[in-house]
Design a protein around this nucleic acid. Structure first.
Lengths: 118, 118
DNA sequence: TTCATACATGCACAATGATGCATGCAATTA
DNA sequence: TAATTGCATGCATCATTGTGCATGTATGAA
């Protein structure tokens, strides 16, 4: 069985655990940050002022949320004159989720073989 | 353009926001819970005692983490005699991630069209 | 140069969440 | 039935995090 797989179970699991970046998930576990993502999808590249006009939180709060999501590669950032324009880094976002999904698929056969007993 | 798509942008985004369940991500944003997942992948269906032997936290803490992940469909649970056996709900876990990935793909073309300017 | 603007940051406060102990409950076993 | 076992839960504590105000900084405009 392991002759087919190039990785040992524990290698696969270690890779999965590494991929399960807690800061990435933390970023998505905060409703305000999700609202920011929603705004960015609907309005595209925007500066902090535009985003905070749409949300009840203070500009400084929005600023920190944006920085947080930028740090975990969910957002892209471009500085134009005095403005800081954020947008969703779709490529990185999607590839991160794909990577997680791939690692999980790799690990599942061992622990939950199709989950059909008998 | 919308003639091809059956959903309006705001419908797609609303669906995405609904899919971005904060409790699901919160579950994965806690390192101890990830360690529990690792244990379950390596050891398969296990009861609370077995899991907490492997981790420094108290049994009650592990119990609550397991309950939390069960609530968001990451884990399955089966009661055998006095023991409560948890295992990863691979099917639900994977399909949840697939769903999220699908919704994001749906939304990205609007806001970040391939991200290639010019 | 002087002023205004866009944003970051230090700080205090409040809310949330993780933790461990002690206890309670339900169910198996002797 | 009584004792034991596996787990859940109430509670207090501590750490983390979200929040808003006030201030600082850097940059573009007058």
């Amino acid at each position: 069985m392991n002759a087919i797989l190039s990785k040992t179970p524990s290698q696969s699991v270690d890779e999965l655990v590494d991929t399960l970046d807690s800061r990435f998930f933390k970023a998505l576990s905060e409703p305000v940050r999700v609202q920011i993502l929603k705004f960015l999808i609907l309005n595209g590249k925007s500066d902090i002022a535009a985003i905070s006009e749409d949300l009840p939180q203070d500009r400084s709060v929005i600023s920190r949320h944006l920085q947080f999501m930028f740090d975990v590669d969910i957002l892209d950032c471009e500085k134009i004159t005095r403005h800081k324009l954020y947008e969703i880094n779709g490529e990185a976002f999607i590839s991160k989720l794909e990577s997680i999904l791939g690692k999980i698929r790799e690990c599942m056969p061992e622990c939950c073989p199709v989950d059909k007993e008998i």
